[in-house]
Computed example of a mutant assay.
Amino acid sequence: MTTGSVPPASLLGPLARIAMAAGAAIEQVRREAAMGLVEKPDGSPLTDADLAADLVIRAGLAEAAPGIPVVCEEGAACEDMSAPRYFLIDPLDGTREFVAGDADYTVNIALIEHGRPVAGVVFAPRDGRLWSGAEGCGATRQDGAGPARPVRVRATDGGLVAVASRSHRDAATEAFLAWLGVSETRCVGSSLKFCLVAEGGADVYPRFGPTMAWDTAAGQAVLEAAGGAVFCPEGKPFRYTPENGWRNGAFIAWGASRPPIAS
């Protein structure tokens, strides 16, 4: 079987092992307190942990899935989105949280097919939580060395619980949450927001401020495998295409309860 024909679900095991190895590299940098912090041209931070995780993931994917292109945050300027199948990774999502000493940072690895995230893993190195999901086989959460357990978006006929960015709340988000009439809003960082909706801890995650494709693809894959969906505000499915580029537009990630989209 060629790499291009490998079913997405069969890659979840290797992707999980690679993400955990990258997480171990991140945690080693944190323990050594030698981050090598610099500022990238766009003003975002870059640390030795980002670079160490990047090396681990690239090496792991080259061994586990040779022939599938790898697009990473640190090298995306040299890549395009025209390949029918590629990995989209963020070695350290939530670098600001990592630098600040918070725990809300993740390793994100997604498999994209024709613009759709069909498999993904999200690993939280600080506490060892791992979410995995692939099209057609559902999603799971594993805590440390414990067994993986299925997760599913929750059905609710009561007040909606929203999850929002810890550091990027804006007026558009506040207006949308007010329109929905949410009963509670939880704030977390990184792709953990998608995972919270995927496991039934929240019902909706709106994002109107800027994000990049590698920030969202793995979390979207987990959420959609768990029964959720991600849409543009106008109601179109949220995709990763050359027309859209690496910078995402606005999106709304939903669990089981999706009200009509506001125009």
Rank of each mutant, 00 (worst) to 15 (best):
W254P: 07
A124I: 05
F251W: 02
P41T: 15
L92V: 04
V197M: 08
T3F: 09
G60L: 09
P69G: 09
F176E: 11
L111N: 05
R96G: 14
D90Q: 01
T156W: 01
E79C: 14
I68T: 14
R126G: 05
T3I: 01
G94E: 02
E74I: 02
Y205D: 02
S183V: 03
G245T: 06
C232K: 15
E243K: 01
A253G: 07
P259V: 04
R239H: 10
W254D: 01
G146S: 08
L51F: 13
L88I: 04
R31S: 14
R30G: 01
G128R: 00
E79H: 08
V153E: 02
M20H: 01
T106D: 05
A175H: 06
L61W: 12
G228Q: 08
D104R: 00
I109L: 07
A100V: 13
P7K: 15
V230T: 15
A262G: 15
W179R: 09
P7Q: 07
G115D: 03
F176H: 14
K40G: 12
V182T: 12
E74Y: 13
S82C: 03
Q220N: 04
T241V: 13
A229C: 14
W246E: 11
E113Q: 13
G138I: 02
S165Q: 01
A65T: 11
I89F: 09
R31D: 07
G228R: 10
A226Y: 08
T2V: 15
A162T: 03
A64F: 00
E79D: 11
T216G: 09
K40M: 05
R141M: 07
T185C: 09
D127M: 13
G115T: 13
